[in-house]
Amino acid sequence: MQHGQRRTGPHRTFEELVAEGAAVPTEGWDFSWFEGRATEARPSWRYAESLAGRLAGARAALDVQTGGGEVLGLALGAAPHRPRPVAATEGWPPNVARATALLRPYGVVVVAVPDDAPLPFADGAFDLVSSRHPVRPHWNEIARVLQPGGTYAAQHVGPASVFELVEYFRGPRPEEQRGARHPDRERADAEAAGREVVVLRAERLRREFHDIAAVVHFLRKVVWMVPDFTVEAYEDRLRALHERIATEGPFVAHSTRHLFDVRKPAGTG
C-alpha cells in the first residue's frame, strides 16, 4: 500500500494496520497522515496564526527547534510582512534537511544545532524568538540572543501529555516524571533568568486514536513517549489495544499545552 492510500472498513487486520503504521516516514512535524484515523483538539490561542502576527511586527526573528519547519513556514506564509533576517535551529539531521528545503523560499537560514547546545548567534541578535514544542527551553540562551525589550513567544508541551497512552505501554510513571514540564516550574525558571512572563495560558486537549496504525506511527514519530518502542517489543500490548479499539471505540488520551509570552526587560543584558 502506498503512502497516503488507506483501505478503510472493518476487514483490515491487525497485521495490515501495524505494517502501515510502521512504514510511514516520520521526518518533520507534518501530522496530516493522521487525518481520518486520529484527532486532537487544538489550543484556543491558534499558535501559528499568533506567530504570523508576531513575525509581521518583528525586525529579526529566530525559531528554535523548528522541527521540519512546517509551523514557521505556515506562519511566514500568512504574515503580511516578514522580518529580515529570519533564522531557525534544529537538532535532528533529517529535520534539518526538511526544514531547509521548506523554508528556503522564505529566505530562512536553518542552522543545525543540538537541542542542548548554545545558540550560535550574537548577543541581542533578535527581537523575537519563537518555538513550538521545544524539548526544553534554555532560558539563559534565549535571553542572551534577545534584544532588550524583545519577546519569546512559544507553545510548550505540558505535564503528563498523552500519558494515558504512555502508561498503557509502560505502566504508571513516577510523580516526578508526571510533573515535568509543568508551566509553573517553567515560569519560575524564566523569572529566575531575569525574564518577565507576560502571558502564560494552559489547556488540556482531547486526543483520539481510531486505529492501531495511528498508535504505531505516533509512537515512532514522538519517540520520547515510549523510548524503547518497537512493534516487536510491544506486539502483545499493541494487539490487545487493537482489539480494544475494535470493541470499544477510539482510545482517548489528553494532550497538555501552554502558551508563553516572555519579555526581556529593557535595559537588561
Rank of each mutant, 00 (worst) to 15 (best):
T100Q: 15
G91S: 15
L72R: 12
P120H: 08
G77P: 03
A87N: 02
A97N: 10
P120R: 05
G77N: 04
G77M: 02
P83C: 05
A122E: 15
A125N: 08
H81A: 15
D123I: 00
A117H: 08
G77D: 06
R84G: 10
A117F: 05
D116R: 01
N95H: 13
H81K: 12
T100F: 05
G107F: 09
P120F: 07
T100E: 14
V96P: 07
R98N: 04
L74I: 10
D116W: 02
L102P: 15
D123P: 02
G68R: 09
D123R: 08
G124I: 05
V109A: 14
L74F: 03
G107N: 08
R132W: 06
D116P: 00
D123Y: 01
G107Q: 10
A75I: 06
L102I: 14
T66A: 04
E70A: 13
T100V: 11
P94E: 04
R98T: 14
P120Q: 12
G67Q: 07
G124D: 10
L119W: 02
R132V: 00
R132E: 10
A125S: 15
R98H: 11
R104L: 10
P83S: 05
P105E: 04
E90V: 08
A79P: 10
Y106T: 02
H133A: 09
H81Q: 15
V108I: 13
P83E: 05
G68D: 08
L72K: 06
P114E: 08
L102V: 12
A112F: 06
V110F: 06
L72Y: 13
V113H: 08
A97C: 05
V109G: 06
G69W: 01
A99T: 05
G67Y: 09
V110M: 03
P118A: 08
P114S: 09
R84C: 13
G124A: 14
V111Y: 03
V86S: 07
G69Q: 01
V71R: 09
G124K: 14
G77Y: 06
P118G: 05
V109E: 15
